[in-house]
């Protein structure tokens, strides 16, 4: 399946260097309800990267994800997603970002198919029917396609939420603790989706409390503590204890 938003990436892998970074964050600060949540973050994520965003509770992970998804606005600094400013080109960013949270946020009184078709229309996808069918098939929900979400099991709902997240073929996939409450099947599916998306040129940024799983899924680890970026490097170079140490030594390395 082609990625509409980044046509060059598949044809010419060598051109990867010249692609706009998937995420570019410059001196980002965010104050929420008078509380500083993010304090001067600067980092870039290259296209097609798999990044784990780690940090203790209250480190600012969700806030950062909300800013990247245009749900929150930066208090200061600049944030570009696929080269588009989250403040001024919000609709362009929204078209390119897929978001899967730890809560499914599906309409329980609509069927699985109706949910996908509704969001397909919201993203302005012309062949939303066909795409919804293909995703239902792939996520093993075809038999349940016409059941209301209310009647689906928790695992099925999570899979549906995952399908909805990649429905519009986003260039950047944001996963906010997607593994909270997922069963083993769904977890395997999640790992598969993350790898498949990366192979298709999609950048993935995921947060998780399961440090080991995050490190295993990702190439790069970003570690936040107290609203500051305390680590940005290859995930393979870190183990769980390193990350725990980073959580507590918040005024340490920069």
């Amino acid at each position: 399946m082609s990625i509409q938003t980044m046509p060059a990436s598949q044809a010419r892998p060598a051109a990867e260097q010249s692609l706009p970074a998937a995420i570019q964050v410059e001196a980002l600060s965010k104050t929420f309800a008078l509380r500083p949540v993010l304090r001067g973050l600067t980092f870039a994520v290259p296209a097609r990267a798999r990044v784990a965003l780690l940090g203790p509770n209250g480190a600012g992970k969700t806030t950062l994800l909300r800013i990247l998804a245009t749900l929150a606005k930066p208090s200061a600094g600049e944030v570009l997603v696929a080269g588009f400013d989250v403040r001024h080109d919000a609709d362009q960013v929204r078209r390119r970002v897929g978001y899967v949270g730890h809560q499914p946020h599906l309409y329980e009184d609509l069927s699985a198919r109706e949910n996908l078709e509704f969001f397909g229309r919201m993203y302005g996808i012309s062949d939303h029917r066909a795409r919804a069918d293909a995703l239902l098939e792939r996520f093993g929900l075809r038999a349940k396609a016409n059941e209301r979400v209310r009647a689906l099991s928790r695992g099925q709902v999570q899979r549906l939420a995952l399908a909805r997240g990649i429905l519009h073929e986003p260039a950047l996939l944001l996963l906010d603790e997607p593994d909270t409450g997922l069963d083993e099947d769904a977890l395997a599916l999640l790992a598969e989706v993350v790898r498949a998306r990366a192979a298709a040129g999609v950048t993935t940024l995921l947060t998780t409390h399961q440090i080991a799983r995050g490190l295993a899924l990702a190439e790069t680890a970003l570690v936040l503590a107290g609203g500051r970026l305390v680590h940005n490097g290859p995930a393979a170079a870190l183990d769980v204890d390193d990350v725990r140490a980073l959580y507590t030594a918040r005024r340490g390395a920069r």
Binding site: A33, L34, R35, P36, V37, G58, G226, G227
Partner: peptide, 14 residues
Amino acid sequence: QTEAERLRARIESA
């Protein structure tokens, strides 16, 4: 009042 709340929040989250 706003400033006081802001400072309190900063102390709490420091």
